[in-house]
Structures are given as structure tokens and as C-alpha cells.
Design a protein around this nucleic acid. Structure first.
Length: 585
RNA sequence: GGGCAUGUAGCUCAGUGGAUAGAGCAUUAGAUUCCGGUUCUAAGGGUCGGGGGUUCGAAUCCCUCCAUGCUCGCCA
């Protein structure tokens, strides 16, 4: 259906040229979906914008355009409305043909990108030896969704987990590991550290209270960076333990990532500093090696530095990010680099990107973009915390969603006097609980903070995952009840549109393609959520108004085709959000 | 103090130059011999934070002020 919009734009361009000459070949026809269904399906606002330039009333311009406009195969005759809008209504036969061709296509008519790109999506990125907490939720969910959409469009996506597996805190952790688990380095068995957070806390405590320990920790950092085997082994143990814990959550969320931690770039850091020096960008200030930034100032109004080598000669995260950026462009051949982190890091990325740009490391064909998102707030409007005021562990948060979803399911089963197997209950409550969390996050404009509420996200009515899952389940209910195999409806079966709710549903079904190319560009998953919610609503309206199984042929088959296309569109759309459907719930 | 973001219905939020600003929740009033009513229909509810400006046209772009949040040289 983006084909439709593209076609119509092309026709408008031809009409503009025919009416006003070749100078108008590059004028944007300003063709957009109609602002109100009563105006039709699409509208062009180009006549209003040309009014001044052509020194003619907009309506007169609109008439000259429609005189030359040839869209008879797609639309009813265009009409001119108001001050000069050109309104287009799609022909019924055109809609019917388009629907049928989507319905027979496994990709539902969604084209692959014309020029597939090499894309890196950097997301999730927890820190080794710390637990994943609510702060990692959004990056993981949004990143996975964006990666899925780009993959579906045919791009080659590298999903990178830039884990925090390097840095000064490891000195402290390794020193404490030696102290508390002296056997760990000599026995072959996997180490059971237990609660890594408690481990981290104890290590920090030792570090804070004991000068000797601090010195040992510093030595361990040096040994780690120098590649001393014994220390490296301790480091690997810590990483493996963390990895196992992360994996539990990734499995639960069904998110796949390629781990490439900060340590990976360690051998490349020195070259970053050297190259910056060679290009004359490097300045030494108070013992630290910096690049002074344009457009960033401190309280006195002096330029702010980006420090790439500390006064103790260590490197920091800016250096790592610069090295990673170079590696992703040069070695990974990335043409689009996407960083999914909280909005608080906007400055940092703007600074790193500026330095990379000034160093000439970003070729003109490479797009590099920070995709920021806001905080997760509690229902009190403040940063989400547990009752005791601690950060919420991601595992706990997800388990709670599943538990609540299960309680809800069981009370419904009881009320309806249904009985289901334990397997069914476990599967459905997990699917619904996780979907609810993901959808609640993705459905909001990511740039703002959002308020986390189990009650709202798990509600069966409203803009929630359960509402959409239910719409899908209803369609499967039709298939079960009528013993219909949607795949066996026959190749010569046709769709006929008659009822208003059929038209509304049909037109919406054909808009997925436009939505997806929008999200591919602006990386705003909430637009896809909005689309799917409206689809569910429009299906429910159709379902309310139009009997399916009891309809006469050929209407019955036509409606079954609409149901099938709706179900598959929901399934596809939800899968791009990282949400799987259930057949019953 | 500087930078960035946010401010739209009672609440949670869509809407990044077009026609009368839209949803959901909540509230109120309706609909069901029928495919899962976990649904559908309708109503009330708005100085789009305030004020200027640009434009044929502004919630949207610019300026300014106010409020909130995040952030500001050796953590990531």
C-alpha cells in the first residue's frame, strides 16, 4: 500500500508538470492520509502551498491539477474542497484487489527495503557483576523492537550488547573474589557467587573501608589491563556468572543479542588517542588528554573538554565509544549506527559524535543516531523504586507481571467456570504478562518518561497488549468454531466490501506498509503500537456489525479472508514489537 | 548559571505546517435470540503552560517568559 501512496505521488508530479511546467517536477505534492475519513482516503495540500508562488487562488490551482491528474485506475474522480484541498477516495475494486494480493503474500504486501543497509543497533548493555534492573528494561525492549523492524525490512542488523565488562570497578571485584573465594581460581567447577549484587556491595564496602584493599584493587586493574593470566581468569569468572544471569532475562523476554563488551575495544584505545593527536585535535589539560568541544561550555563559559585519556593515563568511556564507533564503521561496515540509551546520555553522545565527525571518522554515507528514551516512573510520578527504596530488579518486575497476569487469568477461569491445564495457565500468563510490560513501554512516545502501572498495562480494555491479544484470539475462535482452515480458503476466493465497518477495516489493513516505513525512518515504535490498537478496534467494530460464519456466500468467504488478513497483520505487527500471540487466553 | 528534554481533557497519553485538536482510562446513558460482551454505540469534558512573531494556514516553526525533569572535565 505504500505502493499506493508512491503511485499517487508520482501521478501528482506528472500532473503538476503538465499543468505548470518542468520547474514543478521537484515540488512535493504534499500527499498525506486524509485528516478525516469524510474527506476520503488521501488529500493533497499542494495547491494551497503554491498559491502565492503562482499568484492564483488555491482552488484555481487545484482545478488545473485535477484536470491533468490521471488516477482513474486507483481513485474515484478527485474533488476539491475548502480553500483548495484535493481529496481522493480509493476505488472499491482497487481496495479489493490490493487486499487479496496482501492476503496471498506471506509478507502481507510489505516490500523489502530497496537498498538494504548494514545496521548496528547497540542496546540493552548491562554491567557485568551488577544485576539487570528497571533501567535496562526500556533499552532492551525498544532496541529489540527496532532491530526486528529493520530486519523485517531486509536490513542486515548487528544487535550489539555493549556490556560493561571493563573498567576500574573490576580491580575491586577481582580483589574481593581472591579474598572471599580463594579456591575459585584453582578449581575447575563453575563458581557459584550467588547474588552478584550482594557480592558487588561487599566488594565496594571493603574498598571503601580498607586502604590496603584499595591498593590491591588498583594493582588488579593494572594486571588486568596488562593481561596477567591469573587476573584475567578471575575476570572471566565474573563475566560468565553475570552472563548466565542476564541470559535468564533475555530468554524470558525472547531477546537475542551478540555480546561485544567494552573490553573488546581495549586494544584499540591507544590508536584513538594517537589519531586525535595526529589531527591536532588533542589538548593536554590538567594532565588529561582532551578534545575541546564546540558548543559545550562550563559554568564560566569556557569550552568543555571530552576527556579521552585521564591524568592517570587510563582511558574512559568516551575513548571506548570512539573506538567502538570506528570499529563499527570500518570493520563492521555499518552504514547506520543506532544507540539505544536513556536520554540522560544525550550530551555524552552528542560530544562523542562531534569529536568523531571532526576527526573525519564518519563517512558521508554513514548515519549515526542516538535514540534516547525517558525514565520509568512509579505511580507516584517519581523514579521507580521498591517499597524499601531500592532499584527494582528486572527479574522481579517481570515475575510480578506474570504473577498478576496469572491471578487475573485464574479469577476469569473461575468466573466462567472454565478449567484449563497447568501448562495452559503457565503459558498464557507468561505470554500475557511479558507482552503487557513490553507493550506498555513501546506504546508511549519513548522520548518522555513513562509511569509504570501493572493495573493499566494488564487491563483487558484500553490500549494494552491484552486487548489486542484478545482480538487475535477472537479470530482464532471463529476458525475453531467454524472449523475453518484459513490457509484453505481457495485461490479464487475474493474479497467484497459492502458494510462501512468492512471498508474501515480494509483500509486500515492496507496501511501497515506506510507505518512500517515511517518507523524504519524515525525509530518510534509507538506508531506501530497505535496502528495495531486501531486495527484491533476496527476489527472489533467489524465483528460487532458483520456476522462471519452465518453470512451467505460469497460474503462469508470474503469476511473470512478479512479475518485471516487481520489476524496475520496483528500477528506480524505484534511480532515486530517482540510480542507473541496466543491462540486462546 | 549553561545545555537538552517535557508541558495537550479529571488521569495516562497520541498528534514533528493543513479542514471542527484526537484516543484510552475514569464518569454517565445505551446495545446482546449471533462467531469468546475481555465487545460495541453515544454523551459530557480543551485559553494545546503564558505572551509575542513567521505563514494563506501554527499544538507543530522562531523569540521570550514560567513550571518540571535530566545533565554539566577525569563513573558509564
Amino acid at each position: 500500500m505504500s505502493a499506493t501512496l508512491d503511485q499517487l505521488k508520482h501521478r501528482f508530479t506528472q500532473a503538476l508538470v503538465a499543468a505548470f511546467g518542468n520547474n514543478y517536477a521537484e515540488v512535493d505534492p504534499i500527499l498525506v492520509p486524509a485528516s478525516n475519513p469524510k474527506f476520503g482516503d488521501y488529500q493533497s495540500n499542494v495547491a494551497l502551498s503554491l498559491s502565492k508562488q503562482l499568484k492564483q487562488p488555491a482552488r484555481a490551482i487545484a482545478e488545473q491539477i485535477t484536470d491533468k491528474l490521471d488516477v482513474a485506475d486507483i481513485c474515484e474522480p478527485p474533488s476539491i474542497a475548502g480553500p483548495g484541498f484535493i481529496n481522493l477516495l480509493l476505488k472499491t475494486e482497487y481496495l479489493e484487489t490490493q487486499l487479496r494480493s496482501s492476503q496471498t503474500d506471506p509478507r502481507l504486501g510489505i516490500a523489502l527495503a530497496k537498498t538494504p543497509k548494514q545496521v548496528v543497533v547497540d542496546f540493552s548493555s548491562p554491567n557485568i557483576a551488577k544485576e539487570m534492573h528497571v533501567g535496562h528494561l526500556r533499552s532492551t525492549i525498544i532496541g529489540d523492537c527496532i532491530a526486528r523492524i529493520l530486519e523485517f525490512r531486509g536490513h542486515d542488523v548487528l544487535r550489539l550488547n555493549h556490556v560493561g565488562d571493563w573498567g576500574t570497578q573490576f580491580g575491586m571485584l577481582i580483589a574481593y573474589l581472591r579474598e572471599a573465594y580463594p579456591d575459585a581460581l584453582t578449581t575447575a567447577n563453575a563458581l557459584e557467587l550467588g547474588d552478584l549484587v550482594a557480592f558487588y556491595r561487599k566488594a565496594k564496602q571493603r574498598f571503601d573501608e580498607d586502604e590496603t584493599f584499595r591498593e590491591t584493587a588498583r594493582q588488579e586493574v593494572v594486571k588486568l589491563q596488562a593481561g596477567v593470566e591469573d587476573t584475567q581468569k578471575a575476570w572471566r569468572l565474573l563475566c560468565e556468572q553475570s552472563r548466565r544471569e542476564f541470559q535468564v532475562i533475555y530468554d524470558l523476554l525472547n531477546v537475542h543479542l551478540t555480546e561485544r563488551g567494552e573490553s573488546f575495544y581495549n586494544p584499540l584505545l591507544a590508536a584513538v588517542v594517537e589519531d586525535l593527536d595526529r589531527q591536532g585535535l588533542l589538548v593536554e589539560d590538567a594532565g588529561a588528554k582532551c578534545v575541546f568541544l564546540e558548543g559545550f561550555t562550563n559554568k564560566e563559559g569556557d569550552p568543555l573538554p571530552l576527556i579521552v585519556q585521564k591524568s592517570d593515563s587510563g582511558y574512559n568511556y568516551a575513548t571506548t565509544d570512539l573506538a567502538a564507533l570506528r570499529y563499527r564503521i570500518k570493520q563492521d561496515q555499518a552504514e547506520r549506527l543506532i544507540y539505544i540509551t536513556d536520554a540522560g546520555q544525550a550530551n555524552h553522545f552528542a560530544q562523542v559524535f562531534q569529536v568523531a565527525r571532526r576527526a573525519g571518522w564518519i563517512p558521508s554515507n554513514v548515519e549515526i543516531v542516538h535514540v534516547p528514551f525517558g525514565l520509568v516512573l512509579g505511580e507516584d510520578g517519581k523514579k521507580l523504586k521498591t517499597r524499601s527504596g531500592e532499584t527494582v530488579r528486572l527479574k522481579d518486575l517481570l515475575d510480578e507481571a506474570i504473577a498478576r497476569s496469572r491471578a487475573d487469568l485464574e479469577s476469569r477461569l473461575k468466573a466462567e467456570d472454565r478449567s484449563e491445564t497447568e501448562e495452559f495457565k503457565a503459558k498464557v500468563s507468561q505470554a500475557v504478562g511479558i507482552s503487557a510490560v513490553k507493550y506498555a513501554d513501546l506504546s508511549q512516545n519513548r522520548t518522555s518518561n513513562y509511569i509504570f502501572s501493572y493495573d493499566k498495562m494488564l487491563a483487558l480494555q484500553g490500549n494494552t497488549a491484552p486487548y489486542m491479544l484478545y482480538a487475535y484470539v477472537r479470530i482464532q475462535g471463529i476458525s475453531r468454531k467454524g472449523q475453518i482452515d484459513f490457509e484453505q480458503l481457495g485461490s479464487e476466493a475474493q474479497i467484497f466490501l459492502h458494510e462501512p465497518t468492512e471498508f474501515t477495516l480494509a483500509k486500515h489493513l492496507l496501511q501497515l506498509s506506510e507505518i512500517l516505513s515511517g518507523v524504519e525512518q524515525d525509530l518510534m515504535p509507538n506508531r506501530l503500537c497505535q496502528y495495531l490498537f486501531e486495527l484491533s478496534q476496527k476489527f472489533n467494530q467489524f465483528y460487532d456489525q458483520c456476522p462471519v460464519l452465518q453470512a451467505e456466500e460469497p460474503t462469508r468467504t470474503s469476511r473470512l479472508l478479512l479475518c485471516d488478513l487481520t489476524a496475520r497483520t496483528l500477528q506480524l505487527g505484534l511480532s515486530l514489537l517482540g510480542i507473541s500471540v496466543v491462540e486462546r487466553m
